[in-house]
């Protein structure tokens, strides 16, 4: 137990060292705005991937409407800063909360649905959210809404760390195990006394909260948000991160978020090529490596293995 705790703090410290180095580079002008922006994008995409990972990868609830929660976070936070003159941090939080409430609303009725039916229902919910924004003049309808630039490397990174810590801690507890048991065998989970409804909704709510936060960051990183940014293709962009990483692997989701964000930055000028590559990757992964890059394993498992082997070979009581 003690060891686990210290690994946790070690990771946190390393993360902040990384943050500091990047921040220094930005301040010194070594990283031009293009790279900074890419880094921010990576943070946002990791938040999205990890939050969806909780719903699909951990709890096994196949949601393909994550962009709906992203949209809510984006719009609500933009309303907060642009219309109500609230501070950015509050706006982010508000976006997360409203998205989480929507997660509750979507989660509860969706519980009666399984597998592909649930998928279609989440897609429907996301479309409804988008159409609602499309029809509200207050937020600019189809033309969208102007948003000031407020997202920085620091805010994105803090949100990212918060997301990962919360979701990792949730996963590594009785609550996370309950969610995984639902994914593995819902009927058995139920028979073991797990309130499956409660945990499915909890996964939706937590996942949506962070999608909402990502939405706030996303909105304040552009100069404009439009309902068209949050259609099914956006949900698909998030879905592919989770699938490629390996359903059930958080580090897989993180790695593929980094990888694909970089790839799409290079393909920015060629959106069709990008979509062809994305969809081809998705199909090929499903056909030839359905477990994705990482399966359900985590990076730390490899690390653990390596340590274990070394300990076994050497002095058992040394380390």
């Amino acid at each position: 137990m003690l060891k686990k705790v210290s690994t946790f703090w070690l990771a946190i410290v390393l993360a902040f060292v990384f943050y500091g180095v990047v921040q220094l580079l930005i301040l010194n002008g070594f990283l031009n705005p293009f790279y900074t922006n890419t880094l921010i994008f990576i943070c946002i995409n990791i938040i999205l991937a990890v939050s969806l990972h909780l719903v699909i990868g951990i709890t096994g609830q196949f949601s393909i409407g994550h962009a709906g929660f992203l949209a809510l976070g984006a719009y609500i936070s933009a309303i907060m800063t642009m219309k109500l003159d609230m501070p950015f941090s509050f706006a982010l939080f508000a976006g997360g909360i409203v998205a989480a409430l929507a997660g509750l609303v979507v989660g509860i009725p969706s519980l009666r649905l399984r597998g592909d039916y649930l998928a279609i229902a989440t897609l429907g919910f996301a479309e409804i959210i988008r159409i609602i924004f499309l029809n509200i003049d207050y937020v600019g309808g189809a033309a969208g809404m102007q948003v000031t630039h407020a997202t920085t490397w620091t805010t994105s990174f803090l949100c990212l760390i918060l997301t990962i810590v919360v979701i990792v801690n949730f996963t590594n507890s009785r609550h996370g195990r309950a969610c995984i048991s639902i994914r593995e065998n819902e009927i058995a989970a139920d028979a073991m006394g797990i309130n499956t409804t409660y945990y499915k909704v909890a996964a939706f709510v937590i996942g949506s909260f962070f999608a909402g936060i990502a939405g706030g960051l996303y909105a304040h990183n552009f100069y404009i948000i439009q309902p068209a940014n949050f259609g099914f293709l956006k949900s698909f962009d998030i879905l592919i991160l989770v699938v490629l990483g390996g359903l059930g692997s958080l580090s897989g989701a993180v790695i593929s978020a980094i990888l694909l964000t970089v790839v799409s930055t290079f393909l920015q000028e060629l959106p069709e090529t990008r979509m062809i590559i994305y969809s081809l990757v998705l199909v090929l992964v499903m056909l030839y490596r359905p477990q994705g890059l990482m399966g359900t394993r985590e990076i730390t498992d490899y690390f653990g293995n390596w340590k274990w082997k070394r300990v076994k070979g050497g002095n058992q009581y040394g380390g």
Binding site: L239, V243, L282, V283
Partner: peptide, 15 residues
């Protein structure tokens, strides 16, 4: 799994 099949179908559609 049905989810794998569904993901493939989505991929094929976009492709």
């Amino acid at each position: 799994t049905r989810i794998a099949a569904l993901i493939t179908a989505i991929g094929v559609s976009l492709l």
